[in-house]
């Protein structure tokens, strides 16, 4: 008898990241249902999960969760490889790059709120940079820029406070791995 089933070794860490990614995907889907006057202005609730992962498991894990979220949300929302997907991917990449640097800032001075605000600016910056190179004339982007930046500041700060509270409380969503 030959066994055709391919077994991929799965570590508890993999399961944990998958669970966190699922949480981020859920938040992205829930958020997609919220109507928004300007496409692209969103609370970015999935960033709460990504920042918690960053604080607890480091940058690599956060990049995994973020990548899985963008890909799976694209699949589930039916925008995979559509312009919206690439904008989202560009935002996530820019945000992760900023976090890679910001995460080395002295922890005593810069807490989750700083990380969240910087990540939110990264998201907006990455999206608008791609949009201006590819989709919209630069003049149109320029007009929208202040709205996106203001939204990033407000939502980034709000998410940051949520992250700080969850992190201080050692929220069970990012703890251990109950099977």
């Amino acid at each position: 008898m030959t066994h055709w089933a391919i077994e991929l070794p799965v570590t508890p860490d993999d399961r944990r990241l998958a669970r966190l990614a699922a949480l981020a995907i859920g938040l992205t889907l829930a958020e997609a249902a919220i109507p928004s006057p300007i496409p692209g202005v969103k609370p970015g609730l999935a960033n709460i999960v990504i920042l918690l992962v960053l604080l607890q498991d480091g940058w690599r894990a956060a990049a995994w969760v973020s990548g899985l979220r963008v890909l799976a949300a694209g699949l589930l929302l039916g925008t995979l490889f559509a312009p919206g997907f690439w904008l989202s991917a560009a935002g996530a990449c820019a945000s992760l790059l900023i976090l890679a640097v910001a995460h080395h800032l002295p922890k005593r001075l810069f807490g989750p709120v700083s990380l969240s605000v910087l990540a939110a600016f990264g998201h907006v910056g990455g999206q608008l940079a791609l949009a201006s190179l590819w989709l919209l004339p630069a003049a149109a982007i320029l007009t929208l820029l202040p709205l996106f930046a203001a939204a990033a500041l407000v939502f980034g700060a709000a998410n940051g406070v949520i992250v700080a509270r969850l992190h201080l409380a050692n929220a069970p969503i990012v703890q251990g791995s109950p099977q």
């Binding site: 810069f110 807490g111 989750p112 709120v113 605000v117 910087l118 202040p146 203001a150 700060a157």
Partner: peptide
């Protein structure tokens, strides 16, 4: 929850947004 640097980042962000506008 809010550290010294966070206040700085928020202020800088606010000034940035106003300047951008």
């Amino acid at each position: 929850m809010l550290r010294a640097g966070d206040v700085g980042v928020l202020l800088a962000g606010g000034v940035g947004v106003v300047a951008l506008t």
